[in-house]
């Protein structure tokens, strides 16, 4: 039975996390010897999807409504999945992906697994590995139902190209009977978001005050990175809450995570542990972060960071 992926877009661009989902879906479709179907909403140019192994592309025109609508999106996905006799539906680990996952699963009468890592170990019954206890452990879980909805952990599988002939189709946009509508979006436009970033530069209380955040921002700018912070930093209002990462903040699964003046409390580490490479800069050699990091500098952030930034800048310029 076919595999279906939800392709998320942002201003007519396919999100990286969705290309990862497509690559992952392709591998599952190959393992099951079936086709891979993609569904996207309001995307005018879908040609890129042919390079990521999508056999059938459903474009859904959301008409006047350009905003994300969880009820209408989940119903549409469910209807297409049903008509195509899909048994595995995959969303990304983005905010919208995780929003849709349980809604689609409930409508589709499917089992829902979030934070999925790696390809299923078996297909009947379906067995997946997923992270739990905020990255402190994994479970191997089995579905009791024929159909499943998976939310793939961001940055856990990678993006793999595969060119195929894609069939283009359109599908109707389902209605909603709910009185809940999006009125506006406030994007912090010029910045990379933590969820989409390859590199995250994070600052803790060791930076002493918000006036020193140019250290973090300059380094982030050179690396094209998102900026993040520890919980007390956002609680004290040095930085916005949207930058708070950790167990009670945002999860981070970037390729590179640079922590500056962050002690590495268990709740902080829990949220950032699935980042691939972790670097810590801290003047206390006993800081717990050194036990969790791959690379570290025991030193004063106010000296080390500007030098690191200028060396990296020089490197990028050649």
């Amino acid at each position: 039975m076919p595999v279906l992926v939800y392709i998320e877009t942002q201003e007519q661009e396919i999100k990286k996390s969705s290309l990862e989902v497509a690559s992952y879906g392709r591998a599952i479709a190959d393992a099951k010897d079936t086709i891979l179907i993609a569904v996207c909403f309001g995307l005018s140019d879908t040609s890129l999807l042919s390079h990521y192994g999508i056999d059938k592309i459903y474009s859904v025109s959301s008409g006047e409504e350009s905003n994300f609508n969880s009820d209408r999106y989940s119903s549409t996905l469910q209807e297409i999945a049903k008509s195509e006799a899909v048994d595995i539906l995959i969303v990304s680990g983005s905010a919208n992906g995780r929003f849709l996952g349980p809604l689609v699963a409930a409508k589709f009468e499917a089992t829902y697994f979030s934070n999925v890592i790696g390809l299923p170990k078996s297909y009947s019954p379906l067995e997946v590995k997923r992270s739990c206890f905020t990255n402190k452990a994994f479970t191997h879980s089995i579905s009791n139902k024929e159909k499943v909805v998976l939310s793939l952990s961001s940055n856990s599988y990678g993006i793999h190209e595969k060119s195929v002939e894609s069939e283009q189709l359109t599908s109707a946009y389902s209605n909603s009977s709910f009185n809940l509508e999006v009125v506006s979006e406030e994007k912090s436009s010029d910045k990379v978001s933590i969820a989409d970033a390859d590199v995250v530069v994070s600052g803790g209380r060791g930076l002493k005050g918000p006036e020193n955040w140019h250290l973090i921002e300059d380094l982030a700018a050179v690396l094209g990175a998102a900026t993040a912070c520890s919980k007390p930093v956002s609680d004290m209002g040095w930085r916005p809450h949207s930058e708070h990462v950790g167990q009670t903040g945002k999860p981070v699964a970037s390729n590179l995570y640079i922590a500056i003046g962050v002690s590495g409390a268990i709740q902080h580490l829990a949220g950032i542990n699935s980042s691939k490479v972790k670097v810590v800069i801290n003047n206390d050699p006993e800081a717990p972060f050194f036990k969790a990091a791959d690379y570290g500098i025991v030193g004063d952030a106010f000296e080390v960071v500007p030098e690191l930034t200028s060396k990296l800048r020089a490197l990028k310029e050649v």
Binding site: A110, T111, Y112, F113, E127, K129, C132, N135, K136, A137, F138, T139, H140, S141, I142, S143, N144, K145, N273, V280, F290, K291, A292, A293, D294, Y295, G296, I297, V298
Partner: peptide, 19 residues
């Protein structure tokens, strides 16, 4: 709808490389 077959802990991390 599902069953936890087993749990697993992440592998122990190697030591940090200090620069």
């Amino acid at each position: 709808s599902s069953l936890v077959q087993s749990y697993e802990k992440p592998p122990a991390k190697g030591p940090v490389k200090l620069v």
